[in-house]
Computed example of a mutant assay.
Amino acid sequence: MDLFKDVVIDTNFFMIPFQLNVDVINELEKTLPSYRLTTTNFIIDELVGLSKNKKNKNRINAKLALKIANSPKIFKKNISLEDDESVDNALIRISQVLATNDKELRIKARKKGITVIYLRQKRYLSIDGHV
């Protein structure tokens, strides 16, 4: 059992600093100082894929997001996707607190009792649930 309470960070949350100019990592650290900012190898893999996609306009943002995800501020968990499991379903399986801006994922997570942190009005972190 982990000694830390984790905030699991989704791919799109790592992209916010470069899309909306909000330092969400710093804001998470201030808002939840007793939590460990965490991501998984499958989120890192997703960012790597986005950073290599020549047709994707977010390629540069993904490369920058990858630097944040790989920084010492973020704890990495080596968790694999189960057979035919989507990234969203894996995030729901492993999270108690999830940082995401994906509206459908937020709804699914809340239905499962997972606390969700998201960016509101393109400026403020909002927490839906108990921390």
Rank of each mutant, 00 (worst) to 15 (best):
L47V: 09
T39L: 06
S86I: 00
L47F: 03
E85C: 09
R123Q: 15
G129E: 08
D128R: 01
V22K: 15
V48K: 14
V22G: 01
K103H: 07
I127A: 04
I16K: 06
K67R: 15
V48W: 07
I94A: 13
I79M: 09
K52T: 04
I79Y: 05
D45E: 14
L20Q: 13
G49L: 00
D45T: 06
N78W: 09
N89A: 11
L28T: 03
K55H: 07
R110Q: 02
S34T: 04
I107P: 00
S34C: 02
R59L: 10
S34K: 02
E29T: 06
K67D: 15
N56Y: 10
D102V: 04
V97R: 13
A65E: 05
M1D: 10
N70L: 15
A99T: 09
T39V: 04
D6V: 12
L81W: 05
K57S: 12
G49T: 07
D84W: 00
T38Q: 14
S51M: 12
L3A: 05
D23I: 13
R36L: 11
E46Y: 01
K30V: 03
Q96M: 08
F75L: 14
V116P: 00
Q19L: 12
K5W: 09
N26R: 01
P33G: 10
E104W: 03
S71M: 09
V131T: 05
I60D: 02
K30T: 09
D128G: 06
K54V: 08
T31G: 03
D83E: 08
R110M: 07
N21P: 07
N101C: 06
T40A: 14
S71F: 02
E82A: 12
E85P: 09
I43V: 15
F4E: 02
G129N: 01
K54W: 11
D2L: 14
Q19V: 04
D45G: 10
K30N: 13
Y35N: 02
